[in-house]
């Protein structure tokens, strides 16, 4: 019969546990290392974009093509969502304001909520979906099919041609799309008010813009440039650094949308805090 040896048993247990612990520590170290490497990569990517933006050979033609793709081609989507945003907000708010006898405040309330918060955030989220995924998928597939390498060997800086033009176009076009969504949202609000009652166009607009101050508009306009930057940067970073397989194109597009949407909300929160401190 085999004799029970408690010392050997404890030794064996301790060895297994210490191996498990060291494996876990190694895995955590690798994870932390990857995370820090990713952060360093993002910073280097941003620095490279800034450097290439101010280089002599800015790719103007490609920049204008991207402005057309990002700005003009997003107009139908922004028109529909902007109009519905104003219309729905008006129809939902009207009964509550009627209860308080404050229906005359409705145009101003809708205008302020659209300009300060709703139009910038919803438009930016839509752009994150449309533009961010487009950039992630396009650059990702260019990486997979070696088109970015082909650009590099034909003496073209792909960072300057592909990334800088897209990021700059997003920074310029997203604020313009947000202004457009503001205008259509207020127009949609008038349509909503007209459905429920008889409101003159001139009266509605004078009531809408009367309470709007410069400080309602200005911080929202400034933060929209940051929304554009976040969407462009995330879309390009994910696409440009996509893996080699076809699967990575889908991953790049998907993660570009998710991360850009998340960052839009985070940037909005920071912008609201800063604006609140200033007012």
């Amino acid at each position: 019969m085999k004799k029970f040896n408690p010392v050997a048993k404890v030794k064996g247990f301790a060895t297994t546990q210490s191996v498990r612990l060291s494996e876990k520590t190694m895995a955590k170290t690798v994870m932390a290392n990857n995370f820090l490497t990713d952060i360093a990569d993002v910073f280097l990517f941003i620095i490279q974009i800034i450097r290439e933006t101010f280089s002599r050979d800015f790719e103007w033609k490609e920049f204008f093509r991207q402005c057309f793709q990002i700005g003009y081609k997003s107009l139908p989507l922004i028109s529909i969502t902007g109009t519905i945003m104003g219309l729905v907000l008006t129809i939902q708010s009207r009964p509550v304001l009627i209860n308080f006898g404050a229906v005359t405040l409705l145009p101003g309330m809708v205008a302020i909520s659209l300009i300060r918060e709703m139009a910038p955030v919803i438009t930016a989220l839509i752009c994150a979906g449309k533009i961010g995924s487009g950039m992630g998928a396009e650059l990702g597939s260019m990486r997979v099919t070696e088109q970015i390498d082909a650009m590099e060997v034909s003496s073209t800086n792909p960072m300057r041609f592909l990334v800088v033009t897209r990021v700059m176009a997003a920074i310029l076009m997203v604020p313009l799309l947000i202004l457009y969504a503001d205008a259509l949202g207020i127009l949609g609000s008038w349509a909503g008010a007209s459905i429920k009652g008889d409101v003159s166009f001139v009266l509605f607009f004078s009531q809408a813009f009367a309470p709007v101050k410069f400080m309602d508009f200005f911080p929202a306009f400034i933060k929209s440039f940051f929304f554009g930057a976040v969407i462009g940067l995330v879309g390009c970073y994910k696409g440009y650094n996509a893996g080699r397989g076809t699967e990575s194109v889908g991953v790049a597009a998907n993660s570009a949308v998710v991360l850009a949407s998340l960052l839009v909300i985070v940037v909005d929160m920071i912008a609201v805090q800063i604006t609140d401190m200033m007012l």
Binding site: M142, T145, E146, Q147, D149, A150, M151, E152, V153, S154, S155
Partner: peptide
């Protein structure tokens, strides 16, 4: 690189 031509396996046309 201006003196070097590279034909990629996939063609890599834009």
């Amino acid at each position: 690189r201006q003196k070097i031509g590279f034909l990629f396996q996939s063609g890599a046309l834009y």
